[in-house]
Design a protein around this nucleic acid. Structure first.
Lengths: 218, 218
DNA sequence: CACGGCCAGGACCGAATAGTCCCGGAAGGC
DNA sequence: GCCTTCCGGGACTATTCGGTCCTGGCCGTG
């Protein structure tokens, strides 16, 4: 772990492109398998096989399973944030939110609602058993919510949202609806509940839109 | 399971009060432990120890761990529905919903948001690994939502809710907000997100209240 | 009061899975 | 072009945990 700190006299490069590729392959396999089976139900042998590597590599790149899981939390968090940045960074209007909603629903409908949210599932499974994983997930959720609330702030600044709208609370509510929607959709093997949940959150945000464009509740 | 059906000639009582008590003790212990550690992270030895019983009892009352987990799903589902029936059966007004919300938040705040919803956590952990458990959880969620939507129907029939309110969708949205709130609160070790989520859902329902009592959006 | 069935206890077994070790071989510097 | 260094492979070990089995004793019944 921290023995990279101990710089040997001769500049030794402990990084190698092949090594990085292997590490990536392991994480990618862990990501796939743990997404569908859950973290605890996935064995290291499953991962080894799926990643076309070996035990020694797993333990070369990760101290133990817990470390691998933590690395996965980081990995998956980065993936989600990157994806979400694409959909939210330029958010400036309500219709942008609708497009964002549609993209999430569409993606999840490919699985018929199964598996839920990569981050949400891990949060449920790990929050009570790995404090460090929990706090990383918490940060990721915060960053994700911030992408949303930043967009809402822009909408408020531009006058699209009324001044009394609270972007942070709206973002939290939307995130909860999203996560709850994922959860119910997973239990139902059907995206419908997720759609209903997101539509509720969007209607709630809609109720904070400024008058000009019409504010009929229905 | 169904071998009680096969009635032997002589009326043999296979039930005994002590046996029932033991079974109950096992389920109660499993309920407690799996609530805080999660299902997969709880071992049968943990349960045996916590319930002051032995291995043979576990396997006397349950065929295997999976059966125990399924029994727990039923057990916990019954508990939740019973609790929720108390809070929702007489629901007739918006303030009743607020009281219901407050009770849930208060209960969860005792854990500082930890552990989440007993049903929701199981749904996440089991949906991808036990089809039967998933469908039982799905039914339980449906029954829970029905308690809510029945109340909303009563409110609509009495004129408290506008005719264009859709009790089923509102109930699904509320349930998603609740589950998402539990999830975020668990990750944060803080009930705040759950409160925000529930308040969003309640405000959404509020927007469907009839005019007379005032309909200020804010 | 004796007998038989059911329940509690816990030692024991086997499989699965996390984690270790050693060797072969490729890559890159001297 | 050799030699050190690090990466990859997979056999091996240890442990945990689900599941079995045998023993003893309590309880109700004839």
């Amino acid at each position: 772990m921290s023995d990279e700190q101990v710089a040997a006299p001769t500049n030794r490069r402990r990084i190698s492109q092949r090594g990085i590729a292997t590490r990536e392959r392991i994480l990618e396999a862990a990501n796939r398998l743990m997404f569908v089976r859950g973290v605890n139900a996935t064995t290291l042998d499953d991962i080894r096989e799926a990643s076309q590597t070996s035990k020694s590599q797993l333990y070369h790149h990760f101290a133990d399973k817990q470390e691998l899981v933590r690395a996965l939390v980081k990995y998956r968090g980065a993936l989600v944030l990157q994806r979400e940045r694409g959909g939210l960074e330029r958010l400036r209007s309500f219709s942008g939110l609708v497009r964002w909603r549609n993209a999430l629903v569409k993606a999840n409908s490919l699985n018929n609602g199964r598996y839920g949210c990569g981050l949400g599932s891990m949060a449920v499974e790990l929050s009570d058993q790995d404090e460090q994983a929990r706090s990383m997930l918490l940060e990721t959720f915060a960053a994700w919510e911030k992408l949303i609330s930043d967009g809402l702030h822009r909408m408020r600044d531009s006058g699209a949202l009324r001044p009394d709208a609270d972007p942070e609370k709206l973002a939290t509510g939307l995130m909860a609806a999203l996560q709850g929607g994922y959860l119910l959709a997973n239990a139902a093997h059907n995206v419908a509940p997720m759609e209903v949940a997101l539509d509720m959150a969007l209607e709630h945000i809609k109720s904070y839109l400024s008058e000009p464009s019409g504010e009929p509740t229905r």
